[in-house]
């Protein structure tokens, strides 16, 4: 039998309709509306909260405390600003919880990713040394 005979020409219109084959988990849509409404109200309150009437004396007291804490820090921060610029930025990214990996990744281009793939060629000993001499590293690792 020749190869051509075995190979049947495929024609979409001659075939019965091919379904996508995707299955939706049972009850998926039952919870979807709820989930989305929750997300929306969350976003909403984020925007409104500052101006809402719910500002009570607790918020006022908290604001005073925060201000009291911030003023000395701010003064200190200002005087060291230029030299600590990078450290502050890194800490900000590391601790700011509403910046997701996805957000950061969306700012990177191919070149950045290439750069990240650099093989550091570190020996275990040198890592140990680095860890001993640089206590700040622990923070990066645990994050």
């Amino acid at each position: 039998m020749s190869l051509i005979k075995i190979m049947k020409t495929f024609k979409i219109e001659n075939e019965p309709k091919i379904k996508s084959g995707f299955i939706i988990p049972e009850n998926y849509f039952d919870h979807l509306t709820e989930n989305i409404m929750q997300k929306i109200t969350k976003e909403d309150t984020k925007v409104i909260s500052l101006f809402s009437t719910r500002i009570s004396w607790i918020y006022a007291a908290a604001a005073v405390i925060v201000l009291g804490l911030i003023i000395p820090i701010y003064n200190d921060f200002n005087s060291n600003f230029t030299e600590n610029d990078e450290v502050i930025l890194e800490n900000y990214i590391a601790n700011k919880s509403d910046i997701s990996d996805t957000d950061i990744a969306s700012l990177l281009d191919e070149e950045d990713i290439q750069k990240m793939n650099v093989d550091m060629g570190l020996e275990e000993k040198s890592i140990e040394n680095e860890l001993l001499t640089n206590p700040n590293l622990e923070q990066y690792i645990t994050n």
Binding site: S20, F22, I23, I24, P25, Y28, F29, L32, T33
Partner: peptide, 15 residues
């Protein structure tokens, strides 16, 4: 929700 689910599913493929 259903038509948009199907639309997105055909593009990203997994649930």
């Amino acid at each position: 929700q259903k038509p948009l689910y199907n639309h997105i599913r055909t593009i990203v493929l997994n649930h």
